[in-house]
Design a protein around this nucleic acid. Structure first.
Length: 604
DNA sequence: GACACCAGCAT
DNA sequence: CCCGTGCTGGTGTCA
């Protein structure tokens, strides 16, 4: 819009002068910055008296303009529902230029005036000013909010602390900007052939489902499924959905229902379920693939890559550094943090299902370096658990990491009191894993006892790890007093108060607090690592950069095979980010030349 | 069309 | 009542 000079946004001086209301707001109240609540539209009415009417007026007018164009088949390039990404769909932000352009260029102004001013409206007069008004309000509200938040933050949290947190996000801006504009390379042909494979199998399995059930439906929706399985076949529902209390029909439940079929010799229903499970897998895959296909672009947004090939295809995910209540990143359009792992379809399935899934395309192989490039993902080994150990200051846990234990095995040994030279069984390890994840996800006493099927285990653990117990009590106390917990770097996180801690559910809130402190510290560490590794890349490794961030993993790109010393340096930068916050965190490195799922582990 | 719910994917 | 944080897309209901 001509407000900022976009010529050299990668230049250091440029970023020096950028302050981000999102970061300031998140520091003021980490619950504000969720996906739904962070926009000015929500913040202005909440903290100022502004109702932000001008945005609404603009949205409506833009939509009227788009309708006007559609009705007349005018040759205006209008954002189309199928091609405009989700974020732009809402109110046609992509068409902000439209009102002024119509006023300036539409040949029959009289016609335009009649349309805009019909039914007593005066929209024609607004065409030339509506976006300016919006933009002005946007600036004013942004400034006033920032001013207000900063004042509160400095008073409540102290200037030095606050400055540190703000500086971290400040330093992240150019890093995120680079990632967002330079994008993630995808293998375009592979994408298309994978979609075709999915389609083939979807058709095949669906046809079989129709045959077996005699239901000639386009799709086996949840309601059709419930009717068939529970009413017609007489199977017993396993569990019920949270709100509507209907029988759950997710994959796990369907697998259990399949067991019921085997017991009762319902061969047709049994085979139906197999086909349906395979069908669901392929349908989901296709959905992901089509999502990637829809938003991919030829890499013309890559102004800084020297020998850039216009035939390469890229995705440009949007990153929100304040997209979560815990300081983790969120990613959208597409979400680059939930790319399916290859192992996913082949575990815990029945043999016939496995067979049908054998040709299933691997989504991770869609992503990979462009020709000639190298990617190397570097991930923190069991970062969350190490943070938990550091937070609790539980010596035995910290020591087990130092001694190089597999942590789940270590926990299995502790729980089942195994001698050191005896190997834990896979069942024992599974229990231990459930306990570990339970803790970092903030499970309650009841939940831990239930998922491990060992009543009383939680209490045993509390005796076994007294510091962990103290840590829980301390977190609980913090929540009772303030509703706020702190990460290891001192970042304040608000616990959602939808469950009031004073009505007997304080324990639950306390476990939430554990989760927030662990995830919050994780986010903090990885953000610092990103800033520092980016700095290293720009300084010492030409044309290298961060491609993606997946919570405890950073994927780098280089135009040639990275040297061992570069990898070593990057690794220690990442590890130092951990120790800076008091966590010992070794980092694993892998190299890939073709795609994310064909990695070579590097041994240094 | 807006909204709630459900499902499925990740760390 | 509840093991967390996210994003996306489909279905079904309501206005």
């Amino acid at each position: 819009m001509g407000v900022l000079d976009w010529e050299e946004p990668s230049h250091h001086d440029f970023w020096e002068n950028i302050y981000d209301l999102g970061s300031i707001n998140h520091l003021f109240d980490s619950r504000d910055s969720g996906v739904r609540q962070s926009s000015l539209k929500c913040l202005a009415p909440k903290y100022l008296d502004g109702d932000y009417e001008s945005q609404e007026v603009m949205e409506k007018l833009i939509n009227r303009c788009r309708n006007f164009c559609r009705l007349r088949n005018a040759h205006w390039k209008i954002g189309d529902k199928k091609t405009v990404p989700q974020a732009l769909k809402e109110f046609g932000k992509g068409d902000m230029w439209l009102p002024a352009a119509l006023l300036k260029q539409y040949p029959d102004q009289n016609e335009l005036r009649l349309y805009m001013n019909k039914e007593g409206k005066h929209d024609y007069e607004l065409l030339g000013t509506v976006c300016d008004t919006y933009l002005r309000d946007d600036c004013v509200y942004t400034y006033r909010l920032a001013e207000g938040f900063l004042k509160e933050i400095l008073e409540e949290q102290g200037p030095e602390e606050a400055e540190q947190h703000l500086e971290m996000n400040h330093a992240l801006h150019p890093v995120i900007w680079k990632m967002e504009t330079q994008g993630v390379h995808v293998h375009h042909d592979h994408l298309e052939s994978s979609i075709a494979t999915c389609e083939h199998w979807i058709k095949k399995t669906h046809a079989r489902c129709v045959d077996l059930t005699g239901k000639d439906v386009q799709k086996f929706t949840a309601s059709i499924l419930r009717k068939y399985l529970f009413d017609e076949c007489g199977l017993e529902p396993i569990t019920f959905t949270a709100k509507a209390k209907l029988p759950q029909v997710d994959s796990d439940r369907l697998l259990l229902l399949k067991e019921q079929c085997e017991e009762r010799d319902l061969t047709e229903a049994n085979e139906f379920l197999s086909n349906l499970l395979a069908n669901t897998k392929y349908t989901t895959k296709k959905q992901y693939l089509e999502g990637y296909h829809r938003v991919q672009q030829i890499g013309n947004k890559v102004p800084y890559e020297a020998d850039f090939d216009p035939h390469q295809w890229y995705l440009f995910p949007s990153l929100k550094s304040t997209g979560t209540g815990t300081t983790r990143f969120s990613s959208s359009n597409p979400n680059s943090q939930n790319i399916e792992k290859a192992s996913n379809p082949f575990e815990d399935d029945f043999d016939d299902v496995k067979e049908m899934l054998e040709q299933s395309p691997k989504l991770r192989s869609i992503f990979g370096p462009a020709k000639g490039d190298w990617w190397f993902p570097m991930d923190y080994k069991q970062l969350q658990l190490r943070i938990f150990a550091a937070l609790t200051q539980e010596d035995s846990l910290i020591q087990s990491f130092r001694d190089g234990w597999d942590f789940h095995n270590f926990m299995a040994h502790a729980i089942f009191d195994l001698p050191e030279n005896q190997k834990a069984t896979s069942a024992q390890r599974r229990v231990a894993k459930a306990v570990n994840f339970g803790f970092i996800f903030g499970a309650s006493e009841k939940k831990i006892d239930e998922t491990t099927k060992k009543p009383g285990l939680y209490q045993e653990l509390m005796i076994m790890f007294p510091n962990a117990k103290d840590f829980l009590d301390e977190t609980k106390e913090q929540i009772r007093e303030t509703g706020i917990v702190y990460t290891m770097g001192g970042y304040p996180l608000k616990i959602p108060m939808r469950m009031s801690p004073w009505d007997g559910r304080l324990n639950y809130a306390a476990h939430m607090g554990v989760c927030y402190r662990v995830q919050g510290t994780e986010g903090e560490i990885v953000k610092k690592a990103m800033v520092n590794t980016d700095q290293y890349c720009t300084t010492f490794m030409e044309d290298s950069r961060i491609v993606m961030q997946i919570h405890d993993e950073i994927v780098f790109k280089t135009p040639e095979r990275p040297s061992k010393s570069h990898i070593r340096n990057l690794r220690s930068i990442m590890e130092n980010a951990g120790t800076h916050f008091g966590v010992e965190t070794p980092v694993d490195v892998e190299l890939c030349q073709h795609s994310l799922d064909r990695k070579v582990t590097v041994i240094l």
